[in-house]
């Protein structure tokens, strides 16, 4: 009992302390690099000095281009949310069709495989052509890029529904719709959520590119603007913010996913 709790405690300390050590090593390397080989790279201390205001007053709005980092993050998140919701609303039914119908799969799977690896930088101009305005073009790009993991995982989930469950539905003579709602959707749910999680990761990845090219206010837009204003410290601030937000989003989705799996 005693040794068990001690083991657990040691494990927990390891989980907390080791990442801090890893982080410290990277910051040290960064400091050394910025003072030796890469002198144009802002040092950690200069980055902190320049970013302080943006981090300490994260929701402040001092002007259109000068806002707290979390305020910018919020703009980006709302933009991502729009594209992501569209991606899920389109991707899930598409995944079900691909998973349920061999005819549909044979017809459309090649197209999906071709569109899947297309870069956001390629979709964005098409978005401009279609919608004439930067906002919907960005939303379009996020939706087009982040949809595919949802489509493919949903299709896989539907194909993986055990025949036993479908036999139960058949013996009860459930209608097609009821079989879908009561058996297939719940059975495919864990796969669908894996897709949703991967899609969210991609949506967040795309936002930076979309904001850079559209000049919309957000973390990505801020990053590009500060690059043009030669305030390189803020590029690092933005990179760290994007990384942390992406990490938190993924963890949140991971928690939901875990719940569904055990459920």
């Amino acid at each position: 009992m005693n040794s068990f709790t001690r083991e657990k405690l040691e494990k927990r300390i390891g989980l907390l302390v080791l990442p801090l050590i890893g982080g410290a090593i990277v910051v040290a390397l960064w400091a050394v690099a910025s003072s030796t080989v890469a002198t144009s790279l802002p040092s950690p201390s200069r980055t902190w000095e320049a970013s302080r205001l943006y981090v300490m007053e994260p929701f402040e709005k001092r002007g259109e281009l000068d806002q707290g980092i979390l305020r910018f993050t919020w703009y980006s998140l709302t933009r991502v949310a729009k594209g992501y919701v569209i991606a899920i609303l389109l991707g899930t039914p598409l995944g079900f069709l691909l998973g349920m119908s061999n005819f549909f799969r044979a017809s459309f799977d090649p197209i999906v495989q071709i569109l899947r690896p297309v870069s956001p930088l390629a979709w964005l101009p098409l978005g401009f052509v279609l919608f004439h305005k930067p906002e919907p073009a960005g939303t379009f790009t996020i939706a087009m890029c982040s949809m595919w993991p949802t489509v493919l995982n949903t299709a896989l989930g539907v194909r993986s529904v055990p025949q036993d469950y479908l036999n139960v539905a058949k013996v009860l003579k459930l209608s097609k719709l009821k079989t879908l709602v009561k058996v297939m959707v719940p059975a495919a749910m864990p796969y669908m959520f894996t897709g949703f999680r991967l899609s969210l990761g991609i949506a967040w990845l795309v936002i930076v590119a979309a904001e850079m090219l559209t000049g919309a206010p957000g973390v990505g837009g801020f990053l590009w603007q500060e690059y043009n204003s030669l305030i390189y410290e803020h590029i690092i601030l933005c990179i760290l913010t994007i990384g942390i937000v992406g990490f938190v989003l993924d963890r949140m989705m991971g928690l939901v996913e875990k719940r569904l799996r055990t459920g």
């Binding site: 036993d164 469950y165 036999n167 139960v168 058949k170 013996v171 009860l172 003579k173």
Partner: peptide
Amino acid sequence: PSPERGVVFQNYS
């Protein structure tokens, strides 16, 4: 298949 002939499956299902 029909509920008139109920089935108890081998692996419970």
